[in-house]
Design a protein around this nucleic acid. Sequence first.
DNA 1: CCTGGTTTCTACAACGTTGTAGGCAACGTT
DNA 2: AACGTTGCCTACAACGTTGTAGAAACCAGG
Lengths: 339, 339
Amino acid sequence: MRHRLKDVAERAGVSVKTVSNVVNGYQHVRPTTRTRVEQAIAELNYRPNLSARNLRKGRTGVIALAVPELDIPYFAELARHVVTTAAELGWTVLIDQTGGGPERERAAAAGIGDHLIDGLIFSPLALTAEDLTGLDGTPMVLLGERVDHGPADHVGIDNVTAAREVTAHLIGLGHRRIAAIGAQGTAEGASARLRLAGYAAALADAGITYDERLVAPAPAWHRADGAAAMRHLLDTGVRPDAVFCFNDTLALGALRALHEAGLRVPADVAVAGFDDIEDGRFSIPTLTTIAPDKARIAKLAVELLANRIAGDRQAPPKELTAPHYLTPRESTTPPPTPT
Amino acid sequence: MRHRLKDVAERAGVSVKTVSNVVNGYQHVRPTTRTRVEQAIAELNYRPNLSARNLRKGRTGVIALAVPELDIPYFAELARHVVTTAAELGWTVLIDQTGGGPERERAAAAGIGDHLIDGLIFSPLALTAEDLTGLDGTPMVLLGERVDHGPADHVGIDNVTAAREVTAHLIGLGHRRIAAIGAQGTAEGASARLRLAGYAAALADAGITYDERLVAPAPAWHRADGAAAMRHLLDTGVRPDAVFCFNDTLALGALRALHEAGLRVPADVAVAGFDDIEDGRFSIPTLTTIAPDKARIAKLAVELLANRIAGDRQAPPKELTAPHYLTPRESTTPPPTPT
DNA sequence: CCTGGTTTCTACAACGTTGTAGGCAACGTT
DNA sequence: AACGTTGCCTACAACGTTGTAGAAACCAGG
């Protein structure tokens, strides 16, 4: 049923190694021999056993991508880009879902199915640089804000600047009471801290005093959390005229809560998000956001990993920053000035 | 850096096979020996080479999930469930993105990285039962509507009944001019045909004549297609009072187009979708939909595959149907009758 | 027809693991 | 004391592939 090099070799009347050479495109094979072997391969529908090849070569051609959740749109879109980019380079991607917990993350980092993968692209939530040092194993590239200047290559975006830009955009539209949704005091909240810093910086730039009551925490960054945080803000009576949500799902939740409260967006309250997920382009209203260049992040990550695998593993970790773009949409349209 | 059984064996002063026995939990090992070996394993941080183990055992512990696109919410959510379920059974999942094209799908079916995976859960768009027969290779479970009663186990839902239920729901609310969005004449449109049939059946049940002008095709099922189809319906002047979209992303696009046209949902037009993706629970308005039991689909698929891998590969293909639930939300709230 | 260089091919070993067969103690039974 | 039984352990071979070293075939030039 399943054939081996040996079977092909017998059928073509050559040695096993010659078949191997044909399969691998080795140069010095006579055209007639090559044809004969290829025919035998076709007739037997031979396909190499990758486990054996991997064992022999020490490489598997598989890289892993470890993300917290697959059905968070940002990670789904990122995964799509990583898989596509990797495929172009002839790699297969094994996707691991860590759930964002320290245990599963540690397991992922320690080597998903050891020796099964050549490298790992890892987006940690719970683990820190310390947790990751000393993992002598597989080459790794880190994504996100949790770990930069850690023990491995890292690709991220400039969160502070991005948050500052989007806040400045709101200020530029004349808003002054600008709320922030998504603050997190926890260890996992690295992104939250950076984006909050950008928000605060933009306020300072404009001479607006930072009002703690306008900053709403969100335990996770799902739609439900955004809605809850928005409701909380409205309940406490500090009516903002704009909201910067630290990601798009939070913003979509906030839109929902505002709608339920009978407030119009952007007329009564402007809303901005972060991540540029597909949903935000079709929501009502469409969502102003920061668009990180996900394709570029994926490309950089895969290339960094490829370099590590192919080459020098001792080189100092690289820090790369992918571009981001402020993308204004309906949710922050300036209200038409009454004449 | 990376150690082998041999290294552990030398350090513990036993044979290689004894270490192997300890690693695999073989019974007849003296406690003292076991302890000594375990200590050596810990000291060297030994981890088995899966490629070698796979080569020897003929199984890899990896299954693949092949879907058209990872960032289509339905598939992302499904993938999440598959990965979770598989992890519980000790399997790793390798995710392949086919793009829905026949070439990549054929490649996936023929065996992603042959011998790298023990089985495949496959959601085909382009391939038919014929394309799939004769693939003697890896065990396979099929998902979706494209191929049922094909050469492999299949898990699906009852699309016709589901579509009929949601259409009947709209009729029950008093709607009569009910449009359908998502019709496809192409070979890939298996889901479309079934859902259209359910729609037509429900109309017939209620004695409503099927009006071709109310049925809008959609080349793909993305948000943009839903919006375009809705605009087209509105342009042609056949103002529907309700719309059944063949999936949720189409429906979200339709919501958007209706909003742009100044129509209110559900007051002017009711909208229903299919798939119950997360977005639909937070959209404005929230989306009435058919909720397929995705967790159950994933569970059934993984279990079927596990059975195939472990046992009889010659048994006739099984056809399983997962339940679905009509889930009414705001987008089909009956308009408050004026008093 | 021989020589020397190139091309083409082959035999062998090795990658790290586990199944098989068997050996050596220690034990209880006759 | 001899014997079979059991428990623990080891040596060897094999899984299917590819790198290495070298043998065989081929070719051109004298």
